[in-house]
Design a protein around this nucleic acid. Structure first.
Lengths: 351, 351
DNA sequence: CTGAAAGCGCTAACAG
DNA sequence: CTGTTAGCGCTTTCAG
């Protein structure tokens, strides 16, 4: 059986309160007493029982991160960023994957593990604006990530989708592209990454006086590599002409590049390509992929900080809760080979 | 304040024991009583307090998975497999990333979160055979993954490294390669993935009567894409001739392919390439990458089952613990474009 | 089939 | 500066 406070107290010849004080770094303990306690702790290999502490304090030191799937590199990298931010603040992260359908997302949100965490970072995927009210029912601090829900009662951290995609499109225009495919639209969507990003594309074309060709706006329901590949196959089959692609995420871009290369199209000479997300692998693809770096580490840090603030606000329970905050992170265009047409470029491999 | 057992009991007009019985699906509860209790639970939105349950029962329903890094796709896919296996068995997974150095691995193993989980799945990376004894000190059920430690007192699940790499090498020999690079060796290592895989390579050459050329055994300390790329650059710089590559993992293979393509080498015509791990992305690279599928889902399921068995064994605490078990999973060679030289092949894109 | 009551190990008033 | 004590919410004997 593991040692308890009482065991330590007995061995050190003090009361459990004193041991507790030492453990929790309370100020007023005489140095020699403290030393005796520390010695007893070491001798017994004592470790506080977290369940008991949680029960008593009402806090677990864990937050949950709800994401669709770790096999999706975007979310694996996000999870890594979040775990780093959390561990720097003394928190552990319980990752919960959800199936992508509305029911599964709701059931995880309401799920039993709820009781085991102090708060939730929720990367919204299947729920939408119409579900904003549902979130109020979850009796736990929560910070939203992503572009599906705005103006709820919860704090929200998101990237500059429109601005980012506008910058990407402007970049292609600047290197001479005129028939630019927007890859990844969700017809009819206004809010959500796809709607916002499409808007950035349209803004850029508009500002440059380049007419919009509906055939260049290519639908892709899901944004995995296989979807980018499939979309590119139909584009090629349809015989649509194009000289640039702004993909709504990196995976779509990578899938499309794969098919273009099979078809003998050269990147960036025949078609320039830019993605969105700055996945690690964009540095290693052939060619390396230009992309928008959406400030993911900043998203993770900000979100963890906001969640922690909400948790502490709730613990002190003094005034009424602060107004929900909306944070937009900074993005950055990263130019790599897939949009570098200059003949005399030094040809760094990007590795 | 959230509802407690007592609240439910009061509303239902029964004692808390009865409520507890209903919640835990104990058999002997009269149907009508049960219904009253269920109604009260629904009315109050009662959810059991997990901290209290954990404190009482000594179990948390969580296991921790210790891995180096989620950004490494191998571990992201492993984590996904483990989470699926765990959630099918009613367990949650706490992922803990470790830095890769010995100290950080030890401190996580001994770390405070220990108290918050019922058991540990530990993918050994920085520790080695000489640390087998250290593992005994961790007072928690544990199952080891990977190839760094054998014959400890812990259960262990691992893949068939030698056999897999032998099969990969034999495959290259079968399609006509004679100067095959083994990419990823760790000089001097005997146990560990690198040592075992090199052994498989040597066995295959030996069996085929192909002489070993030391220049074809290429060192790579770490196994990320960038390391494969760097290694390939030095190979090309050294002017070593080769017509096949068996990489010790997929990332090395993908990095090497990138550099070969820059250098104008055609895959598989000039050089056939095979990797190890069957990462998702091997299906989407250019060309698609042949590889060894090491049975990762099976590893995850087996490991979770074994851990659960240990947890239960400890709970019942009857007889002495069962002998440590060693499980080897089945592998499978997956042939894709990177080793398919047949001229008239249909050229499926593998997507 | 159901109720009463004793803790799991810890924190935090409250007293000394 | 340190000790006593009362629970946190649940599970689990042990009696009815």
């Amino acid at each position: 059986m593991a040692a308890t406070l009482h065991d330590v107290a007995r061995v050190a010849g003090v009361s459990i309160k004193t041991v507790s004080n030492v453990i929790n770094d309370y100020p007023h303990v005489r140095p020699e007493t403290k030393e005796r306690v520390l010695a007893a702790i070491a001798e017994l290999g004592y470790r506080p029982n977290l369940s008991a502490r949680n029960l008593r304090s009402g806090r677990t030191g864990m937050i949950s991160l709800i994401i669709p799937n770790l096999r999706n590199p975007y979310f694996a990298e996000l999870a890594d960023d979040v775990m780093n931010a959390a561990s720097a603040r003394g928190l552990s992260v319980l990752i919960e994957q959800v199936g992508g359908d509305r029911e599964s997302e709701l059931s995880v949100l309401r799920g039993s593990r709820r009781q085991a965490v102090d708060g939730i970072l929720y990367s919204v995927l299947a729920l939408g604006q119409e579900d904003a009210a549902v979130l109020d029912e979850i009796p736990l601090p929560m910070v939203l990530l992503g572009e599906r829900i705005f103006n709820s009662s919860r704090d929200h951290v998101t990237m500059r989708n429109e601005d980012g995609l506008r910058a990407a499109t402007e970049h292609l225009l600047a290197i001479g592209c005129r028939r630019i495919i927007a890859l990844g639209s969700h017809p009819g969507e206004v809010i959500g990454s796809a709607g916002l990003r499409l808007d950035g594309y349209l803004q850029a074309l508009d500002a440059a006086g380049v007419p919009v060709d509906e055939r260049l706006i290519v639908h892709a329901d899901r944004w995995h590599r296989v979807d980018g590949a499939a979309a590119m196959r139909s584009i090629l089959a349809a015989g649509t002409e194009f000289d640039g692609i702004v993909a709504f995420n990196d995976s779509l871009a990578l899938g499309a590049m794969r098919i273009m290369q099979e078809a003998g199209l050269r990147i960036p000479q025949d078609v320039a390509v830019i993605g969105f997300d700055d996945l690690d692998e964009t540095r290693y693809s052939v060619p390396t992929l230009s992309t928008i770096e959406p400030g993911r580490p900043q998203i993770a840090e900000t979100a963890v900080d906001m969640l922690l603030a909400r948790i502490e606000e709730r613990a002190s329970a003094e005034s009424s809760p602060a107004e929900p905050r909306e944070v937009l992170t900074d993005f950055r265009l990263v130019q790599r080979e897939s949009t570098t047409r200059a003949a005399g470029a030094p040809g760094s491999s990007g590795l």
